[in-house]
């Protein structure tokens, strides 16, 4: 039987961590872009756009991420589309992240005093101009801490993609366990690596919240 040192285990796990980080970044950036689009629909003046965004958000928040991954992976396969695991994982996570970010950001936009909308409107600004120059700069400050905080959920969410065969940190943990028969050591290390990724994010969210301490600064 081959002997594995702890370094062997850790090295393999760290190599897989790259994919966890990459998938997290892709989900977060892609989810942010789609989330922004959803946000615009969600606060649009058009009823149809608002309804679409509302149902989208309810659907993706109201079903388990795991089911979304399965549907992206197996569902499209039914139509003869061969979806590789990385694509299904990225796609599902982007759509899932977007639904949460859109709703977080909607709260931030709606927390801006109504008078800001009225003042900018009465100066002749159109809706997009109001958004860009008056509402977003203020909402952004409020949005930073919860957005960074949510990124922790995204990192942890990537663990689920191991089930459809995407080799990231969790999947690597399973593979290494199967080779070493040391589940406690391996999964202990996996947990520590996740913690090392997530803790700085949680902590910076707290620090940002204190630093940007923005509540009640609207006039």
């Amino acid at each position: 039987m081959i002997e594995f040192s702890t370094w062997d285990i850790l090295r393999n796990l760290l190599l897989a961590t790259r994919w966890t980080i990459l998938l997290s970044l892709v989900s977060f950036v892609g989810g942010g872009a789609v989330g922004l689009l959803l946000l615009f629909l969600r606060i649009s003046k058009r009823k149809m756009a608002r309804a679409f965004a509302k149902y989208y958000i309810e659907l993706f928040q109201g079903t388990p991420l795991l089911m979304q991954l399965f549907i992206a992976f197996f569902g499209l396969g039914l139509f003869g589309v061969d979806v590789p695991a990385w694509l299904a994982a990225g796609l599902a996570l982007i759509l899932w992240t977007a639904s949460f970010l859109a709703e977080i950001w909607r709260g931030c936009v709606e927390s801006i005093a109504k008078g800001q909308w009225e003042a900018s409107a009465s100066l002749g600004m159109g809706r997009l101009q109001q958004m860009r120059y008056v509402i977003f700069p203020q909402a952004l400050k409020i949005a930073v801490p919860p957005t960074v905080g949510f990124s922790v959920q995204v990192v942890k969410g990537t663990a689920l993609t191991s089930i459809i065969g995407f080799v990231e940190l969790s999947k690597a943990g399973t593979v290494v366990t199967n080779a070493t028969f040391q589940p406690f050591v391996v999964y202990g290390l996996v947990a520590l690596i996740y913690f090392a990724l997530c803790w700085p994010l949680s902590k910076s969210s707290q620090i940002l919240e204190r630093k940007l301490n923005v509540a009640h600064r609207n006039h």
């Binding site: 008078g115 009225e118 900018s120 100066l123 600004m125 120059y133 008056v134 700069p137 203020q138 006039h219």
Partner: peptide
């Protein structure tokens, strides 16, 4: 133009920025 009871200045901009913004944007 309209002026409000609660002033509704844009808190993220300076006084100058408040007066400049709509001129350049609108």
């Amino acid at each position: 133009g309209m002026i409000f009871q609660q002033f509704n200045l844009f808190p993220h901009l300076t006084v100058g920025g408040n007066v400049i913004l709509s001129q350049t944007v609108v």
